[in-house]
Design a protein around this nucleic acid. Structure first.
Lengths: 253, 253
DNA sequence: CTAGGGTGTCCACTAAGTGGACGATGCGGG
DNA sequence: CCCGCATCGTCCACTTAGTGGACACCCTAG
């Protein structure tokens, strides 16, 4: 039984996150129910009430999307939380230097969420990441980068509570995951060898907030052939350099 | 008694709107309770639960602000609802041509909410409007402009249900308000003769969405001495021209 | 035309949510 | 340094808001 007054709020949070993760693609009532673990009448009721508040909207075909009030909340909250303007040059620099699509992601609890994407110039690109998409911290390269740089106690606590194998496969068991994180701490950047979509690789480096905590990550993704040993060092170097530059800018403000 | 499943959602909406309207200024628990009409324990419980979801945050002094999840929701929703990039040049043109601060506001139900502000060059400026601030439709010039251009049935329905006198004074009674709206329909722009803060005047023109509905407004505000009959026509012309340009751009996309 | 999948709504039931009261904390003034 | 006042967080008896299984309706594809 939830803390009093929290159950509906938690459900609202879950519903909004699902629509956010859908990145503007309308979701059906059944889809929202499934993704949030709610029953369909409950999902429908919450969605209708949220639509009444303008936090969600309904498209012409009955699909649910984030609403105009969500946009306004975000525009106001951007003053405090938005680093995309400050980081945009760095994301572009990664895309330009590596030819791969580059991203800025933030940590949100036990998830990473993609905030910014810059297309790379290389004609074959991975489209696994887009603004709003979320992954567990141990899954996408951005989340791996932030997880690797957390204090050991927090990292181990996460590994203890997160069950990634069920949904993401045995490559996400604790032992291989710890190895990946240890390698990331050694080099400063992490490598995701096609564990979300086979053949789509990613690399990432953490960006630290003013308190020294890994709160964001810069990453690059592309096809496997572009992430071999011959290029990994260079991509890693560029990611580290640009991530460090963003960290410095954040400290300076 | 609310529609089932709606009471807590409505309260969440109200809490988030209050924090949004505070435009980043931290609000105390008592302040949120007062502004939303909730009791203090209820406000505290909802705020704590929303903090758990990341939709609100608590600053170092215990004040409540919109949280990182609110920012993310808004960033995702911006794809569908953000016209500030498209309208920025027009807002700047109003500021430049008139010397006054210029704004873009949106209609949100029975309120107008300020989305964008450009400072004017004239050294004496009004600071009544800022991003996130909300007014009833019949109060700020932006809301007046949108209200004036609504279909008559909707406008009259609003006038029937909105009681603006209690909080805003007798100048907001239905008769003077109708006159102001009629004048606005005749000229295409509305004038707010210092009714929010004495001496701070505003003028606005509506921007229409693809369906021809007044969904936004461009406005200019400044000190009374700058809004006399000698300048009203020119300011009105600039507002109309720029609002029309934004309307055209919206149709074209 | 039929079947399947998705939708919206109902309402008996109960668990979640409420708010008055109380104690704690912090700050400012004397 | 102490006291008063304002604000805070928490408690828990009470009640009503929220729930979800069931049902009817709608739409689309074969």
């Amino acid at each position: 039984m939830a803390e009093q007054g929290a159950q509906v709020v938690a459900r609202v949070g879950a519903v909004l996150r699902v629509l956010s993760a859908a990145a503007g693609t309308p979701a059906s009532t059944s889809r929202v129910a499934e993704a949030t673990g709610l029953t369909r009448p409950t999902a429908h009721r919450l969605l209708s009430a949220l639509a009444g508040e303008g936090l969600v909207d309904r498209d012409a075909d009955g699909g649910w999307v984030l609403g105009p009030e969500a946009y306004i909340l975000g525009a106001v909250a951007a003053d405090r939380y938005d680093i995309t303007e400050l980081a945009r040059d760095a994301v572009r620099a990664v895309a330009h230097a590596t030819g791969e699509s580059a991203f800025l992601s933030a940590r949100r609890g036990d998830e990473s969420v993609c905030l910014l994407r810059e297309e790379g110039s290389f004609p074959i690109r991975s489209h696994v990441l887009y603004e709003g998409i979320r992954f567990p911290l141990g899954v996408a390269s951005a989340g791996l980068a932030m997880l690797a740089m957390l204090p050991e106690a927090e990292r181990e606590a996460y590994l203890a509570r997160a069950d990634l194998v069920a949904e993401w496969g045995p490559a996400h068991a604790t032992a291989p995951l710890r190895a990946r994180l240890a390698a990331g701490r050694a080099t400063g950047y992490v490598v995701n060898p096609g564990l979300i979509v086979e053949g789509s690789w990613g690399m990432a480096a953490a960006v630290f907030d003013a308190a020294g905590r890994p709160a964001w990550a810069l990453s690059a993704t592309g096809v496997e052939s572009r992430f071999g040993p011959d290029r990994q060092g260079e991509i890693g170097r560029v990611l580290l350099e640009q991530a460090h530059a963003v960290t410095q800018r954040l400290r300076a403000r």
